[in-house]
């Protein structure tokens, strides 16, 4: 978590394989909120998760995904975290993601 936070504060966008646990997401929000107003121009973060396995059809495929997830964790998802001041907008829908950068 500290690594992600350090990168965000250096104005970098982090792309993670897998997704953060819900508790990690809230912990990240709490940590970043505590820094808004303390660090110049820092307004918080943008988080987006793409989860391709979610739309998998067929019982067999769903079972395969669940077994794989139980063995290696949720690696099929992709998490993108970036500083709000850098990422103007993360347009998210279940299938695609667009990053529109300010600069």
């Amino acid at each position: 978590m500290k690594k992600i936070l350090d990168k965000i504060l250096r104005d970098e966008i982090v792309i993670l394989q897998g997704r953060l646990a819900p508790e990690e997401e809230t912990s990240l929000i709490q940590s970043t909120m505590a820094l808004v107003g303390r660090i110049k121009k820092f307004k918080g973060v943008e988080i987006a998760v793409i989860n391709p396995g979610k739309d998998e059809e067929g019982i067999l495929n769903k079972i395969k995904f669940r077994i794989a997830r139980a063995l290696v964790g949720q690696r099929d998802a992709l998490t993108i975290v970036g500083p709000a001041s850098l990422v103007k907008e993360i347009k998210r829908d279940p299938r695609k993601i667009d990053l529109l950068l300010k600069r």
């Binding site: 646990a21 819900p22 508790e23 997401e25 809230t26 929000i29 943008e46 988080i47 987006a48 998760v49 998210r92 829908d93 279940p94």
Partner: peptide, 15 residues
């Protein structure tokens, strides 16, 4: 409704 805030809140409640 697909905002990460909504998903994070519900994810935390489920956990």
């Amino acid at each position: 409704p697909y905002s990460q805030v909504n998903i994070t809140i519900i994810g935390n409640l489920v956990a």
